[in-house]
Design a protein around this nucleic acid. Structure first.
Length: 444
DNA sequence: GCATGATCATGC
DNA sequence: GCATGATCATGC
C-alpha cells in the first residue's frame, strides 16, 4: 500500500508516531469503518489486532521481526483501567516475547531477544472498561517509548536472575517474585502445558518476558501525566495557541524577574526565567507542554539590554567534528535547529538595570537567511578540513551565526578528523541578527 | 559596549 | 557523567 492509502509513511518513525497520536482522545470506531470486529476467536488482544489491521493496515505477523520493520519499531497496545480510588493503573503486564529456554542461555542481556523487542516501542494506551466493545475503548496516549536509561540496571538484574535459573537447570522454579520490573510470566493455553529446558529433565511452564503491571503503571503515569495541556478557562477555549499564550502572559508583562519570582515563590537560579514561563502557563516543572510538543515549539528566554540588543547570543548543542565534515548543510543538525520554531519569552532591561517581562513571540529563521547560515556552516566545515578546527567563524564574519566554544571547561574536548581533540563548539545566533529579527517580528 | 572565550547549573 | 541551556569574564 502507498503512503497515501496508509495515511502514514512506514519508513519514517516520526510519521508513524504522529499518525498514532491522532488516536488520542478517540476510539477506534471514529476511524475504522467496520460494524463489529470479526476477530472474536479470542477476545484478548482484539484491540491490538484491530489497531494493527484496521488503523495501521498492515498484515498481522507473529514472526520475530518488528511490526514496523523498516524502522525497527515495535507496536504495543496496552490497557489501563481506573482503580477503586479513581486513579489510572495499568490493567496488565506488558508481554514482549516468549522465552526460548534453549536460546536464552546463550544470550547476554545487551543482545537479548527481549531487549531487541523493548528497545523502541510505539506504546498505545487505551482505557479498558468492562463490558465495552474494543472498538469503543478510548485511547489515552500514544508515545514512542524505550526502556529508560535509569531503569536498565534493574531490568538487567531481573533478566539475569531469570536466565541464571535456566542456566542452573531450574526453569521450573522461576517465579514472578524473583524480580522487580521485568518478569518471566507464565504464558500458555492451559496450565498443563510444559516445555523442556536445556540443563534439566524437569519440564517447565512456558514463560514470556514481560514488564510487570506495577512498572507499567509508573510508565503510563509518566507518559500520560508527563504531557500537560495548557489549562484554559471557559472563555479561552476557542483561542489559537499564540492568542492563548498572549492572554496568559498579559497579566505579568511589565513585572521584573524578581517580582515574578516572588509571585511564584521561586528562588534565583539559572533557569528562573524558564520556570517562570511554566508557572505562567500553569504547567509543572517537569511536564512536557502538549501544545509545544505537537507544534515542535521550543521555549527560550531572551533577555534584551536597555538598547534592545540581546544580552547573550543563543546557543545550540555542540556539534560533532566528524559529522560536521561529512554532512552537507542540507541534512545537518545545524539546519535542524535553525528550522525549529521557538517561543521567545522576552525580558528587557529598564533604566534601573532590572529585567522586566516585555513580550512573547514565535520565531523561526526565515528561509531567506538560511544561505547566510549555510555559509557559516560551510566555513567551519572548511576550517576543520584544513586541520584548523580550533578556528571559529566569528560573528563579525557572518550576518546570522557564529561558532564559539561550548564545553564545560576548555579541557572539555571532542575528537576531530584532522588533528588533536579540540574544545567542544557549537553554532550560535548572533546578537545583532537576533535584535533585528525580534524587532521585525514584534512590529508585524 | 562588544566580541569571544570560558564556565556554570540543571536535568537526565 | 554528560548534554544543554544559560551566563560570566576578559580584553579591546
Amino acid at each position: 500500500m502507498s503512503k497515501d492509502e496508509l495515511g502514514y509513511d512506514p519508513t519514517n518513525v516520526t510519521s508513524i508516531v504522529e499518525y498514532a497520536q491522532r488516536l488520542v482522545g478517540h476510539t477506534l470506531r471514529d476511524f475504522v469503518y467496520v460494524e463489529e470486529l470479526t476477530d472474536t476467536r479470542r477476545r484478548r488482544g482484539s484491540f491490538g489486532n484491530a489497531v494493527e489491521e484496521y488503523y495501521f493496515k498492515y498484515g498481522l505477523n507473529s514472526d520475530s521481526s518488528p511490526d514496523f520493520a523498516e524502522v525497527g519499531l515495535e507496536l504495543k497496545t496496552t490497557p489501563v483501567k481506573k482503580n477503586s480510588r479513581g486513579e489510572l493503573v495499568s490493567k496488565e503486564r506488558l508481554v514482549f516475547t516468549m522465552i526460548d529456554y534453549d536460546g536464552v542461555v546463550k544470550e547476554d542481556f545487551e543482545h537479548s531477544q527481549f531487549l531487541k523487542k523493548a528497545r523502541d516501542v510505539l506504546l498505545i494506551t487505551y482505557l479498558y472498561e468492562p463490558g465495552k466493545n474494543a472498538l469503543d475503548y478510548v485511547i489515552e496516549a500514544a508515545a514512542r517509548w524505550g526502556l529508560p536509561e535509569e531503569d536498565i540496571p534493574q531490568i538487567r538484574r531481573d533478566w539475569e536472575t531469570v536466565v541464571e535459573k535456566v542456566r542452573s537447570g531450574h526453569a521450573e522454579d522461576i517465579s514472578g517474585g524473583d524480580t522487580l520490573y521485568l518478569e518471566a510470566c507464565t504464558k500458555a493455553a492451559d496450565s498443563t502445558v510444559r516445555r523442556s529446558q536445556p540443563f534439566s529433565d524437569v519440564p517447565a511452564k512456558p514463560r514470556a518476558w514481560a514488564l510487570k503491571a506495577s512498572y507499567m503503571t509508573a510508565i503510563q503515569r509518566k507518559i500520560i501525566d508527563g504531557m500537560r495541556q495548557i489549562p484554559r478557562s471557559e472563555d479561552e477555549r476557542e483561542l489559537d495557541l499564540l492568542c492563548l499564550l498572549r492572554a496568559r502572559f498579559a497579566p505579568y508583562v511589565g513585572l521584573t524577574e524578581k517580582e515574578l519570582a516572588g509571585r511564584f515563590g521561586l528562588s534565583r537560579s539559572k533557569n528562573l526565567c524558564a520556570r517562570i514561563t511554566r508557572r505562567i502557563l500553569g504547567v509543572g516543572d517537569d511536564e512536557k507542554i502538549e501544545e509545544f510538543e505537537k507544534a515542535g515549539i521550543k521555549p527560550k528566554t531572551l533577555r534584551l539590554r536597555a538598547n534592545g540588543r540581546p544580552k547573550e547570543a543563543v546557543s545550540f548543542p555542540a556539534f560533532d567534528y566528524f559529522e560536521l565534515v561529512e554532512r552537507p548543510f542540507e541534512n545537518s543538525d545545524c539546519l535542524g535547529y535553525l528550522s525549529q520554531k521557538y517561543l521567545f519569552v522576552i525580558y528587557r532591561e529598564d533604566e534601573a538595570g532590572e529585567y522586566r517581562l516585555r513580550d512573547i513571540c514565535f520565531w523561526q529563521m526565515p528561509e531567506r537567511d538560511l544561505d547566510d547560515a549555510r555559509a557559516c556552516y560551510e566555513q567551519m566545515q572548511e576550517n576543520v578540513r584544513q586541520g584548523r578546527a580550533d578556528i571559529s567563524v566569528k560573528s563579525s564574519e557572518n550576518r546570522c551565526c557564529h561558532v564559539r566554544p561550548h564545553g564545560q571547561t576548555k579541557k572539555d574536548t571532542k575528537p576531530q578528523p584532522f588533528g588533536p581533540p579540540v574544545v567542544k563548539k557549537c553554532f550560535w545566533l548572533n546578537q545583532g541578527y537576533l535584535q533585528g529579527e525580534i524587532e521585525r517580528v514584534l512590529k508585524s
